[in-house]
Amino acid sequence: MAVLVFIDEKCLRRPADFLEAAMKMMSVIFVLFLAISASPVPAQEITRSLNLTESSYAAVRKSILVRPSEDQWEKIPWRPNLAVAIAEGREMDKPILLWMMNGHPCGMT
């Protein structure tokens, strides 16, 4: 919307401004197109097609895999079990932060 308003105002002045504004708008559209084409396949699209072919493979795989917003917890160096943490905690004199789930939190939960 902001872009359209910008063009309208420019158009009132002179044709050269209109051309310049149109070029800027095309740039914006091109950038948006690049952003959309680089993002995972929309879930709805997969829902509709269930299309798994050579050409859709990379996009489908990307849309299934863990997304950056979901994997923040992986940056914490979780020890894989309590026994290891107890030994390390004793050695370093540190408390243990223990995450317990039905199913290993780092596997199936």
């Binding site: 160096p77 020890r79 309590l82 995450w99 780092c106």
Partner: peptide, 20 residues
């Protein structure tokens, strides 16, 4: 990090016989 972070499985630890 002021903690030792660890993750484990409820069923294994609730039924296990080892020290941990």
């Amino acid at each position: 990090m002021p903690f030792i972070p660890a993750a484990d499985e409820v069923g294994d630890l609730e039924s296990g016989r080892d020290a941990a």
